[in-house]
């Protein structure tokens, strides 16, 4: 089986396992059990009716709003980052899977500059850390497109009566401009997914920013054999985030999908420094 087929299979399994709570059909509420104390290392909304685990970005924002430092989550994300870099982005994230699939639709294609990936750090700093800390509101969640597709649209369309309270899950009076803006952002990204490679991961994902930071330092590294590399740029053409891996094997934008391993001059190494040899 081809490595990329295995990756696709792992991505689907991750999507299913992260959203394997079907008790919501009975309770009409989100899962409230002990697995929600665990954050998945991917963008998966914990308000999705079938979500089993918590979203790390939602959890960071929550800790900011209550003005506490999330020690455990920081340690967890740092350990994953320093071990495998952004491997979870390429192999586990359901939003990455959606972007990979939608880019296959035939259309005019747009190239996003690698320099724009710095925007992710602004999103992380302002929307996930600073604004929630100052205003005690979860600003990234208000605009998160993953929340739009996994929580907002399903809950608003379904809107069941919660048996315990005898009231609808979503009060229609609470639906206003925020919901419209959320929908607009969500569908704008959906359109971008068709014309650009992984635009959300590269422009806006705060979790990708965290893991991407560790790419240069992680134990798992990509190594390019500089003696045999002819700079043919095939790795860049195949790359789902348009990186020239032979120039920068430790790029923070890399999602560790290993598409570049199709070239015999690129290989995985454990415990090295990720420079071109």
């Amino acid at each position: 089986m081809d490595l990329q087929n295995i990756r696709a299979l792992v991505q689907w399994c991750s999507l299913i396992l992260s959203n394997a709570y079907f008790g919501f059909l009975n309770t009409k509420q989100v899962y409230q059990g002990s697995l929600k104390s665990i954050c998945v290392p991917i963008l998966n909304c914990h308000s999705c009716p079938s979500a089993l685990f918590s979203c790390p970005i939602g959890t960071i924002q929550h800790f900011m709003t209550i003005r506490k430092f999330p020690y455990l989550l920081t340690a967890y994300l740092a350990l994953i980052g320093i071990s495998v870099g952004s491997l979870a982005c390429g192999w586990l994230c359901p939003f990455g899977l959606l972007q990979d699939l939608m880019y296959k639709i035939k259309s005019v294609k747009l190239r996003i500059s690698e320099k724009l990936s710095s925007l992710r750090y602004l999103v992380l700093f302002f929307l996930v850390i600073l604004f929630p800390l100052v205003t005690q509101e979860t600003w990234f969640s208000k605009v998160c497109p993953m929340g739009t597709f996994e929580a907002a649209i399903p809950w608003v369309l379904w809107n069941p009566i919660i048996p315990v309270y005898g009231e609808p899950a979503v009060s229609t009076q609470s639906l206003g401009w925020l919901f419209i803006i959320k929908l607009l952002i969500g569908f704008a990204f959906l359109g971008l997914f068709i014309i650009a490679k992984r635009p959300f991961c590269r422009l806006a994902c705060p979790l990708g920013a965290i893991f991407g930071f560790f790419n240069k330092y992680s134990v798992l590294q990509l190594k390019v054999d500089g003696n045999h590399c002819t700079d043919c740029q095939k790795c860049k053409t195949n790359c789902p985030v348009d990186i020239n891996i032979s120039d920068n094997p430790g790029s923070s934008t890399c999602v560790r999908c290993f598409h570049c391993l199709k070239c015999e001059n690129v290989r995985i190494q454990i415990g090295t420094d990720g420079k071109k040899t």
Partner: peptide, 20 residues
């Protein structure tokens, strides 16, 4: 912190749904 994370994740997030 695990309990804090669980309590947060077990509550339907108004911001995620886009409610005011």
């Amino acid at each position: 912190e695990p309990l804090e994370t669980q309590n947060n994740g077990a509550t339907m997030c108004m911001a995620c749904i886009g409610l005011e």
